[in-house]
Every structure is written in C-alpha cells, then in structure tokens.
Design a protein around this nucleic acid. Structure first.
Lengths: 333, 333
DNA sequence: GTGAAAGCGCTAACAC
DNA sequence: GTGTTAGCGCTTTCAC
C-alpha cells in the first residue's frame, strides 16, 4: 500500500505538500504541483479514506431513509442517490423504516452516533415536526416528501402544479363529473395533489362533491385502489373521470371499471401519477404524470454534499414533471 | 465526543483494557470487564469507526454490484443485503453496471483501491472467468447468479430443481406439447432452467422440439416475452403449455395468448418464475416459482462478513424455492 | 490481567 | 511556498 509519505519521497517534497496537492490548496508552486502529481500517478496512489476521515472527523457515509426500497418509486430515487454518492466517494447506509416513526428516529440517531455525515429522507409525514431537532444539528435533505413549516432543504416536483395540469386536461376534455382517488397517508404530495384537484374544480366553477373523493391505502396498493374505484363507480351519478394519485391505483381503477362493464376511456377517463410502474403492458396504457426520480435522487445527494462540506443551506429544488398522454383518457362522449 | 480514553478514566483502567473489553478479549478479569462496561454505558460511548478502520486497515464498506437496482428482483435482494449490512455496521457502495463487463471490472477495482472490504455480485455471466483474478485476492460472494467452474462462495436457489418442479407439474397435468421461453442472457439460472426443461422432457419420453424453445431479451422484458410467445403460438401444432423463465415474460405470454384468442388456462397453461412482480392484479394470476430474495440477500452478506473477518471460505448456500399454483395453469382439456 | 507506548495515514497549525 | 510535527481514536505488542 502506498502512502502519502511514499509520494513525498518520490517527489522530493514533504508530506504536507503532498497533502496540499491532494486537497487543491492554492499555495503550491505549479512546478511542485506538477512533480507531486506525477509521483501520485506513477505510484498510483489513492488516499486512505479511514485516515482522512479520522483526521477530518467525517465518515463519508450517508444515510438513506426510506419506507421500503423495494417500491419501484423509491428504487428509482435510490438509484440516482447511489450513483451520485459513488461518484463523490460516499457510501450509503440504507434504512428501511416501513413508514414507522420510531424507525425514522432510530435511523437518524446514526447521525448522533457519528455513523454518517448526513441523511436523505425519501419520505416523511407532512407534520413530522420532531424532525427539527435533528435538522438543526445535522445535514439532512428531503427528497420527494417533506415536512411543512420546517425550513429543511428539499428536492421534489411541484405536486400542486402537476395536479393542476392533470385537472386542466381533464376539464379541457369536457368532463364535469371528476372524481379523485387519494391516499390515507400523510405525505405532502398527497395533500398538494388533492389541493390541486379541489382548486381546479373551483376555478372552473365545478362544485366539489365529497363523495367524489375516495381514498386508497397509505402505500397506494392496487387492491385498495380498486376498492376505492368500486365505491366511486357504484354510487349514483358516477364520475366520467378519475384522477388517481398513483399508477398502481389507476391500474386498480381500470380493473374495477372493466369488472363493472365500464369502458375506459370511452365511458371513463382514468389518469395516474408517477410513471414508474410498467403501465404499458395492458391496454389501455395509462395517461400519467412522470417524475424524474433518478434526477431527484442525484440532486438530493448534491445538496446534501453541499451542506456537509460547505455548511448550512436551505435550497429548495423543484424539478420539472412531464404529462404523458396515453390511452386511458378521452374527451367526454 | 467521548473517546476510549474518557471511558478509561471513568473506569480507572487503561485504554488498552477498554479496547480489550470492546473487542471481547477473554483476558479481562470479570470485575474489570464489568466496571468498563458500566463506564461505556454511562458515557454512552460509541467507538469511532474511522479510527478503528485506520488501525485495522478496513473500510467497513461493501460493494454491491448489480445491473440495475431498479429491477424489482434486484431491489428485493438489495433490501436483504442492506438490512444485514446495517446490522453489522457496514455501509454499501452500490454499483449499477447495466450488465456491462467493463463496469463490473471497474467496480471491483474499488477492492483494489481499498475502498471496500468485499463485494457481493448480484449477476454475472456464467463464463466470466476473469473474475478468478479478483476472487483469489479479495472477499467476493455471488448472489443468485454465478460463474461456473469458479470456486467462489455463493447463495442462490436450485434453479435446476425448480425447473424440474415446474415441468413435473406441467406434465402431471397431462400436457405433452410443452414449450419454454428462455432468455438470451448468459446467466447460470437461465442455463439451469433450460436444462431442467430438457431433462424433464427426456425423462418422460417427450421429444424435444427445437421450435418449442423461444427466447426473450436478456432483461426478460415484457415486450420480448410477448413476441416470443407470439412465435410459439402461431407455429403449427402450438404448445398447450409454456414455461416462462420470468414472470414478466409470462405476463407477455398471457397477453399474446389473449390477443390470439387463446384461453389461459383452458387452452394454454402458462408458468412464470420469481414471483416478484405483482402478478395478482389481472386474471389469470400466474402460477410461478417464488424465490426468497430477501433471505438470499441477507445470507450473501453474512457469508461475505465471514470471509472478511475469518478468512477464505467457499460456502455454497442453496435456499429453498416455493412453487405457487395460481390460475394460469390447468389440466389439459 | 493490565498498562505504556508505538503507530495506522492523514491534515493543519505553526515555523521558516 | 514548503517543511516539521502534533495528534485524530483506536489496536496491539511488549513489559511487568
């Protein structure tokens, strides 16, 4: 194993100078820099991270906290975080919380115990104010979901705007009886999408009907989406369009419609959200909002990196979503 | 931050003794042990990993090499690895290779550069003999897929046996015209499943028909599965059963059959593999082989941990699969 | 059974 | 602009 002092000998300088070169300190004369650089290359020297970490009091580990990385949505984000982290020389401690607050806290205690330099939270309830205590002391960034009223850096799409986009489109198709399937979870995305739904109706002078709002499980399960759609479609004056808060729910709604003999999109428009599940297997392919999950992950890492190395920040990054029209939506007949 | 010497003071011993307690050296007198232990608790001391790693020349980082963690199969395994790693105080460097050999080698160079203590490979071609060079020098374990003829520790299910199970079942249903959709990739699982298919036919005196063997893409895509099924079902003397190497392919086959007006399972039995995609959304629910992905991941980590800490090993662990009969299979009519 | 002390590889004050 | 050196927190040899 070659060390900094091997390089120093090779280049005929002191270890301090090598260290300076390694850390891009400006005070090194170009010739010296060159000489050291060549020695580094020649010996193919790689700095020992444990030594550097010990000295700098860092870990070069980040915490990734998610309910369940098996969920494709989180898997995509994780992929982006993971790639960025590798590029910057960080490794990851992946914590599955199963959505439990105790597990969330437990994971953040890793920060307290100095097992990680910072954390990226993939999902957190809108009202998790207990987070403040941690965010004040440690580098934390929100990814996708975030707590309201807490000034913590975050990256996500504009869920409210995306919801508006969906609703404008549905309304432009001539629909008036528009329902939504939301979720029983307590995420900001869920709230904002519902707000967008309500505000759009109001803007267009369409009365909000409470029984046009159904709710699926916290984890957007197919089954619960299907059940919610059943409720919606079996009531009287059934909707001609349903805005679903996720693609899995939309899939459930499509099946419910099919079982009830309602044709999609001819008699019922269904819109999804996320575009991460494969919804181009079965017709009708689902019209949906697509999120740049991978980039959300990458960006989250970069912000965290900035905080760890340059100190506090409260950047809020909003990435663009895309509206993808496929087959499950049509003008009212 | 409390250090080992704080603990030493508190317990009235030397740092060496604290270290011994920390590492369970037997040579510490019970009373001393007790005293130190209490001091550790009292100060809620946590050893500084960077210091320990520097001293021991470790990183406490493992490499996880996968084509794409966004694939649910890998995501499930990753979940198991991640949980086990966290429990043992390891973090992970996740490398997406996209199936490219150069990326695989690149990732393993992290071992050379001492950026990780060992690696878990989630997929590797059956004939990647170049791996030997690395496996001889560094702790590496195979997970799910492995290279033939290389004596590297591994954990997987018995793909050959699983294939036999499927085939015995299909044959017991009375089918004689049995096709398979394999994959163009070069994984051992693919080979073994195909072997099982062939051997079963032979055992039951059914002639192998080359045009009953179709092939989907390397990544088992739905589309390619559907295309392969089309080829199978449009030929003359079409099969009455198709054994698909993955659930996504089976899903494709079901759609192909539906489009061709062939009823599943009445006129065509379709079997899948993996049970990781959600195949209980649409009827018919798919009869399939289920793999204990999470446990495969956990076990792989444990073996790696063993090698890192106790030295070479060539344990081969075979975990049990399950055969799940659902709706896509029926006796020949 | 326990302690003293060296040293892992690096960074950063401080000196020149 | 560069070198000398202390020291980050831990493990481990060597004494006793």
């Amino acid at each position: 194993m070659t060390t900094i002092s091997d390089v120093a000998k090779e280049a005929n300088v002191s270890v301090a100078t090598v260290s300076r070169v390694l850390n891009n300190h400006s005070s090194v004369r170009p010739e010296t820099y060159e000489r050291v650089y060549k020695a580094i290359e020649k010996l193919s020297f790689e700095p020992n991270m444990s030594a550097r970490n010990l000295r700098r009091n860092e870990t070069r580990v980040i915490l990734i906290v998610a309910p369940n990385i098996t969920n494709p949505y989180y898997a995509h984000i994780l992929s982006g975080i993971g790639d960025a982290a590798s590029e910057y020389g960080y490794s990851a401690l992946i914590f599955n919380t199963n959505g439990e607050e105790t597990r969330e806290k437990e994971s953040l205690d890793m920060l307290k115990k100095k097992k990680a330099d910072g954390a990226i939270l993939l999902s957190i309830d809108i009202d998790s104010l207990w987070l403040k205590e941690y965010a004040d002391k440690y580098p934390i960034v929100h990814c996708s979901e975030y707590t309201k009223d807490l000034n913590i850096p975050k990256v996500s799409i504009d869920n409210y705007k995306a919801s508006l986009d969906v609703m404008e489109y549905i309304i432009s198709l001539g629909h008036k009886r528009i329902a939504t399937i939301t979720s029983s979870n307590n995420y900001i995305s869920t709230h904002e999408r519902l707000e967008g739904y309500k505000d759009s109706l109001e803007k267009h002078g369409i009365n909000l009907k409470e029984d046009y709002i159904a709710s699926a499980n916290a984890d957007y399960s197919f089954k619960s989406g299907k059940a919610a759609a059943y409720k919606l479609l079996q009531g009287e004056n059934r909707p001609t369009a349903i805005f679903c808060i996720s693609d899995t729910i939309a899939l459930g709604a499509i099946i419910a419609a099919k079982e009830l003999g309602i044709k999609v999109p001819e008699d019922l428009t269904i819109i999804g959200f996320d575009d991460v599940d494969d919804t181009t297997m079965f017709h009708p392919y689902i019209t949906t909002i697509s999120q740049p999950c991978y980039d959300i992950g990458r960006e989250a890492f970069k912000i965290l990196f900035g905080i760890i190395n340059k100190g506090k920040d409260n950047k809020k990054v909003v990435l663009p979503h895309k509206f993808i029209i496929r087959e499950s939506s049509a003008p009212i007949s």
